[in-house]
Amino acid sequence: MDGRRDPIEIMRDETRVRIGVAPPGIGSVSVPPGTNCLTPSEFLMREPRMAAHYRQGEGITLERGPGLTEAEALLYLHGSIYSAIAAINGLLPLHASAVAVDGKLIAFTGPAGAGKSTLVAALGHLGLPLFCDDTLLLDLAAPGPAMGLPGHRRVKLWADSLELTGSAALELVSDDYPKFYVTRGGGDIATPLPLAALVLLERGAEPAIEPIFGSAKLIALKDDHYARQMFESLHAQEAVERLAIQARLAKSMKIFRFVRSLDRSDFWISTRYLAARLSGMVSG
C-alpha cells in the first residue's frame, strides 16, 4: 500500500450531507443564484431553490429553499456537486457509462442523447454488470491502467427508452424532469476496476466496431463536459498537462468507434452485435 486513502472511502466520506446554511460566497467571491465557485478545497453552488457548500474534510452543507424536492436535491448532489468533490480530490471524471466485462471496464461515451444510459441498461438485460452511468470517475494515482470507481448514480431513462430496453420504471425523477429511475443503486459492482476500453457511440447504417489508434485516440479523449472542465481547472490548467493526461489514458486502453443505426427497430440487433464482441474488445 502507498499509504494513500482508498478513493472510494474518500468519496463516501466527502459526500456526506448535513442540512444547514451555505455561506454567501467563498472568500471574497460572492456566488449569486445560478452560479458556482470552485477552488482547490471548496465548492459552492447556488440555485434558485437550494445552495450547497463543500469544503474538503468537512463534507457538504445543503441549504434547502422553499419548494426543493428530494429528487431535485439528488440531481444536484449526484451531478455538479459530486463532480466538484471528485475534482477537488484528484479524481478524473470521464463523461461515460460503463459495464464490467471479464473483470475490466468498458466505457461508452458520446454527447448527451447518444444513448449511453440506454445502451448500458440494455447490456444489463443481456447479463453485463452495470458499473456506472453518465460519469466514470478515474483514479490515476498508480501507474498502469486508470482505475474506475464504482458509480453512484442510479440509471435514468426517458419513457421511450424504458420501452426500448424493456426496463421497469421504479420511480419518476421529478415532474419537471420526467425521466425514470430503472436501478435502485449506483451499480452492480462495489470495487474499482481497470478501464480497458472506451467506445465512442456514433450513428451509421450497419453496426460496426472499428479500433482507432494514435492521435485519433487523443482527439477522442478530448471532453468538454462540465465535470472534466472542473478537474482541469484545478489540476490541468496548461495544455501540456491536459495532453499528459490524455496520453496516459490513450496508452493504457483501447479505443473503438461503435457505429450503429438509431432506428428503434435495429436497437437490439446492434446491441447484441456489440455484446457478442465486448470480451474481445477488453482482452490483451
Binding site: K217, A239, V240
Partner: peptide, 21 residues
Amino acid sequence: VETEIDDEIVLMRLSDGDFFS
C-alpha cells in the same frame, strides 16, 4: 510537446493545441 502513442509520435503545438501525427 511530443508523446508516443501506438506506432505514432504525436506533436502538440503549444500555441494552439493542434496535433501533428
